[in-house]
């Protein structure tokens, strides 16, 4: 039971409190780039969840069984990038062959994620936080969901922005960045809520 509670806390806090985009400022590039339309935002979000889960599942054993046993912890960044990039490529090939419909719906987003810092961030933070394998999977799921949440929220805000009259000098990217900072500020409100709600 205690274990289950920890998992829930990890999940909720990685979705809301430590949201990768809005609190840790990782993965800002797709956040600003692909959030113009809702369906694109959802597509990207789901692809990120998928890749984050997969990447954590592969990098966790590599860290503990290969790098740590050989005392090569410092090679973490380099190897994780290498592994994530090849993994995404491999998944793309497999999907294209066996599940063409899923490949089509994930479409251009899969290769885009190859070098996404949020994915690398999740895998490295899982190691830094000394999560067990289950915990790190839950945390990746939470981070992916948080990314999806941020994308969906922000695509709604952006469609509102596009309808409104904005001063000339703020049009385009400036107003998008300002809006992003407001959403980020709003997410700071979640700090410590989760522990108090569940942890008690």
């Amino acid at each position: 039971m205690e274990n289950f509670k920890t998992l829930i806390i990890i999940l909720m806090s990685s979705v809301l409190v430590n949201n990768y985009v809005l609190s840790r400022f990782l993965g800002i590039c797709p956040f600003l780039g692909v959030s113009k339309k809702l369906n694109q935002a959802v597509g990207m979000g789901i692809s990120v969840i998928f890749v984050m889960l997969l990447a954590s599942a592969v990098t966790w054993p590599i860290q503990y069984y290969i790098l740590d046993t050989l005392g090569l912890g410092y090679m973490q960044n380099l190897l994780f990038i290498l592994i994530i990039a090849s993994l995404v490529q491999f998944v793309e090939i497999v999907l294209k062959k066996f599940i063409p419909s899923l490949h089509k719906s994930l479409g251009v987003y899969l290769p885009l994620i190859t070098t996404n810092c949020a994915v690398l961030g999740v895998t490295i933070n899982n190691i830094n936080d000394k999560y067990t394998f289950t915990e790190s999977m839950v945390s990746s799921l939470g981070c992916g969901l948080g990314f999806l949440l941020a994308m969906v929220l922000f695509s709604g805000i952006r469609s509102k922005i596009e309808e409104s009259e904005i001063p000339q000098s703020f049009r385009g990217l400036p107003v998008t960045l300002i809006a992003a900072s407001f959403v980020s500020l709003a997410f700071f409100g979640f700090g410590s809520i989760v522990e108090n709600l569940i942890g008690g």
Binding site: I62, I66, L67, L70, L72, M75, L78, L79, L82, I83, S86, Q89, F90, I93, V94, K96, K97, F98
Partner: peptide
């Protein structure tokens, strides 16, 4: 050792990708 490990992992991944690209 570090060089060998990175090289080995890189090589394995490259082989897997090449095979996958070829067979699938």
């Amino acid at each position: 050792l570090a060089f060998l490990i990175v090289f080995a992992i890189g090589l394995i991944l490259a082989v897997i990708l090449t095979l996958a690209a070829h067979f699938m």
